[in-house]
């Protein structure tokens, strides 16, 4: 029981917990990305880490956050169109933490995180609504028949896995032919009624993301909001191991959530995602 109350005490300060996890996630991410533009990053990393290590208790500036921000910014400058979408979100969150270190106002930081989270989820909804390929179910149909989503589960369904392999082989054979001959192939459905399932799944995705976005904007601290957000994160993780992005969304959840059990669930998600990310089982 004592351990349980200790854990509760540890999780009392949302900003502290979320900031620690963000720093952990940030450290893992920038070290994975460190080999890009390494010659430029070495002096920055060396100087930043040295100053942070020697002066962390005396200097008032958030040296480690600034160092990591500069590393993220270098990636943006050199690989704007290649970095993942959550690289941008991570950069904005780090910027919010750096500013928080100076203004020290909790409500400002939480507003930054809330609006950022809302923007990310609502933009994802609009991007899907604007995509005919997504809304008519063709996208999910293609992804499932190729095993590009729900891949983890297909490993336990040998018959379906065979169909996926057969589809991949057929596509590979087609790709070896001249595309100007306008040949086509018939994909084998990994499940019956996959066309309809894909259509329903596409609309469900949009509806769920829309509900999450609106509740984040409307009631950012409500248990219902965080229940929806955790379910959405877990749902996405089941679809594909987008661990880097999901860790970030869960950290946003920790910033805003006041329910102990939901906070604990977020923390489990973040740490699980980081573990999968650094071991390269999940995407960074």
């Amino acid at each position: 029981m004592r351990y349980w109350s200790d854990i509760k005490n540890t999780l009392n300060d949302n900003i502290e917990v979320a900031t620690h996890l963000l720093l952990l996630m940030l450290g893992a991410y920038v070290f994975i990305m460190a080999e890009n533009e390494r010659l430029l990053k070495i002096p920055i990393l060396f100087t930043g880490l040295l100053i942070w290590f020697l002066t962390c208790k005396k200097i008032k500036h958030p040296i480690i956050w600034i160092t990591f921000f500069v590393l993220l910014f270098i990636d943006i400058c050199y690989s704007y169109f290649w970095v993942a979408n959550h690289h941008f979100m991570l950069m904005f969150m780090v910027l919010a933490i750096i500013f928080f270190n100076y203004h020290k106002r909790h409500e400002v930081l939480l507003k930054n995180v809330q609006i950022l989270l809302f923007i990310v989820v609502i933009t994802s909804v609009f991007q899907k609504l604007m995509s005919t390929q997504f809304m008519n179910g063709n996208f999910y149909y293609y992804m499932m028949n190729r095993g590009s989503i729900f891949g983890v589960f297909f490993n336990f369904l040998p018959e379906n896995l065979e169909l996926i392999k057969s589809n991949s082989e057929s596509i590979s054979v087609l790709h070896d032919t001249n595309p100007n001959n306008a040949e086509s192939i018939l994909l084998k459905d990994v499940f019956s009624n996959l066309g309809l399932i894909s259509l329903i799944f596409a609309w469900t995705t949009v509806v769920v993301e829309f509900i999450v976005a609106i509740t984040i904007l409307w009631k950012p601290r409500s248990n219902g909001t965080h229940l929806f957000l955790t379910m959405m994160i877990l749902g996405i993780l089941c679809t594909r191991l987008e661990t880097g992005f999901m860790a970030l969304l869960a950290i946003c959840g920790i910033f805003l959530c006041s329910n102990f059990k939901l906070k604990l669930l977020y923390i489990i998600i973040v740490i699980g995602c980081i573990a999968l990310m650094v071991t390269k089982l999940g995407y960074h």
Partner: peptide
């Protein structure tokens, strides 16, 4: 004609990944 998966617009999983595009040079 940037693919929605990139560029900071959160359009991942809204269209087929550019990885599946094919360059053909006779």
């Amino acid at each position: 004609n940037l693919n929605k998966w990139k560029g900071g617009g959160y359009g991942m999983y809204s269209e087929i990944h550019y990885y599946y595009n094919q360059i053909y040079i006779p």
